[in-house]
Amino acid sequence: MSSADSTGGSPNSPGSPSTAEFTRFRGTDSYLTNDSLESAVNCAVVLERPLLVKGEPGTGKTLLAEAIAEALEMPLLRWHVKSTTRAQDGLYVYDTVQRLYDSRFGDGDVGDIRRYIKKGPLGQAFESERRAVLLIDEVDKADLEFPNDLLHELDRMRFRVDETGDEVVARHRPVVVITSNNEKELPDAFLRRCVFHFIDFPEEALMRRIVAVHHPDLDEHLADQAMRVFYEIRAMRRLRKRPSTSELIDWIAVLKRSGVRDVKLDSGLPFLGTLLKKEQDMVALADQLAGGARYRS
């Protein structure tokens, strides 16, 4: 698939072949999407801009990159950002210690610096034979200036290896998917270069389909009840961390395994630990339930 053809060149008269070559992202069998998300992904693919995905934890931000890679049949490269990650790490790392070591013990050709330049995920994506999907996961974990340091590389899709003077230019501009949990606000200049999508929490109908994808043989009755309890818990205002899609799927998996047939929202709710992860949320829920019981009696 050639990306240059899909954007440049002749104006798009109806039926012109220029977009036919471009495979649209429509989600996968296990990753359900909506029009808005598909549209954002396709914009990012066609315009060759990074796609910035935000949303509640557990709504499938990271999985989106996998789904794109699967649907468009591209290799996936992951770059998990940590608080100590520097932008440089994504491009390449010059392994000086190995080179010094080799010079001491005479293993290999020390004169060839290129042997000691190791490409980071971004560098690998640029060099990939096929167009790749690059996931930059949790970009907000890094330093405040991290996104700014990547501006040029993501814009021009090229960088220079200072040690050798080599210019690494992307053969195919990768589809870059960036996720953020909103821990830090991202700089304006960075935001302007991205296609933005905010993943909404799925509505009940979509959630039902998502659950059906993950648990195809789920008993109708249990599904109904689990969904109801789940949305009731989510509706509680006092929870710090509300359970999301991934928690629901885990929870149903445990319920299925243990052969539970009926669940309802009371103090004996089974496997609550898969839904609520914070001690204070457990307490809050117990409070609420006890309060409700008192109120009813």
Binding site: D35, S36, E38, S39, A40, C43, A44, L47, K54, E185, L186, D188, L191, R192, C194, V195, F196, H197
Partner: peptide, 10 residues
């Protein structure tokens, strides 16, 4: 959908 993806940044 397209405009939302491209014009909205946060």
């Amino acid at each position: 959908d397209v405009a939302k993806a491209l014009l909205v940044h946060r």
